[in-house]
Nucleic acid binder design. Sequence first.
DNA 1: CAATCGATGATCT
DNA 2: GATCATCGATTGG
Length: 196
Amino acid sequence: MVRSEIGGQRTIDFFDRSPEVVAPELLGWQLSQGDVSLAIVEVEAYLGAEDPASHAFVGRTPRNQAMSGPTGHGYIYLSYGMHLCFNVVCHRPDQPGAVLIRAGEVTAGRAIVVARRGREDNLANGPGRLGQALGLERSWNGLSLTTGPVQLEPPVGPVHPIQIARGPRVGISKAIEAPLRFWLSTSTQVSKRSQR
DNA sequence: CAATCGATGATCT
DNA sequence: GATCATCGATTGG
């Protein structure tokens, strides 16, 4: 997907870095599923063993194994028994990690999203809502974001100036002070609890 | 507005 | 058996 190269040799993949570094860089990227596309406007970094709020904090388990898997793949988990949430797996070697995609702006397939959400507003301004908008399925956990049902692509066209805000993550009870949430301060579609 | 609460089931201890 | 990386409806000011 996105790679740095020196002398034609692959050195480090865009996703082979700490989630804390990758997270803000994912703002503005496009997530697509079929005819639906979203522009990412809010993300949170979840680290490995050193992050008490991360699913990976307890060590490798069946649920979090995708966080240790190939980078640039998806990590999908069931939240509160009813919402599927989407992450981009990224980490350094031997060190699980992922970026939770918390909100997006619908850029294509709005009618499909409206049908899936059963409403015209608040289409993807929250991780559970975004999961619905994308029509996530649990069986997609761990799949490639290049060849799988959900595709992730860098911003298309000229990149206009971006205003990135940073603050504490939401909805967690541990490490509540760590400023690992990033969002586009220009977006009206960040999750409700993220607005400043 | 804000604050509270029920739904709902997998996951881990 | 307790805890959730949430949402939407409802309640109360």
